[in-house]
């Protein structure tokens, strides 16, 4: 396991990089998802894999039965997964939004000719009407 997991993580990472370099936005998102998973896997294997007692404290005892497994990598991965999930959900929503607004998922098309750069700024007459144009 100790050699297999890093190899697997590396393979997934490489696949992710390949997908990142494709021109379709959806493939880019999938690439980021793969890289995210490979990093989690790397974090897991770098925390050392061991087959020991679960790190649970029995009733009436004050420490787990040793030797017990290290729970920290799992806590870290759980945090990383939750954060990654949130960010990826946002990335997907953004990709969908871009597709709706700009009508394509091809990055060369998407990133062509930006418009007038002040398009996002709403002109204002005065503050009293709540700032609407």
């Amino acid at each position: 396991m100790d050699t297999l997991l890093p190899i697997l993580a590396g393979a997934i990472f490489a696949t992710g990089i390949y997908l990142l370099l494709r021109s379709s936005l959806i493939l880019t998102v999938i690439g980021i998802i793969l890289i995210s998973n490979s990093v989690n896997l790397a974090l897991f294997s770098l925390g050392r894999i061991s087959t020991e007692n679960p790190p649970l404290i029995a009733v009436g005892s004050i420490e787990p039965i040793s030797p017990f497994a290290n729970p920290l990598p799992q806590a870290l991965i759980l945090t990383a997964i939750v954060i990654g999930f949130g960010l990826l959900a946002f990335a997907l929503a953004l990709a969908y939004r871009s597709y709706r607004e700009l009508g394509t998922v091809d990055q060369d098309e998407l990133l062509k000719d930006a418009e007038d750069t002040s398009a996002g700024i709403v002109p204002r007459e005065n503050l009293e009407n709540g700032g609407d144009a």
Binding site: L25, L94, A95, R97, S98, E101, L102, Q107, L110, L111, A114, E115, D116, T117, A119, G120
Partner: peptide
Amino acid sequence: NSKNQLQGAL
């Protein structure tokens, strides 16, 4: 959601 904002954000 203006076009150039989406491009920048991507």
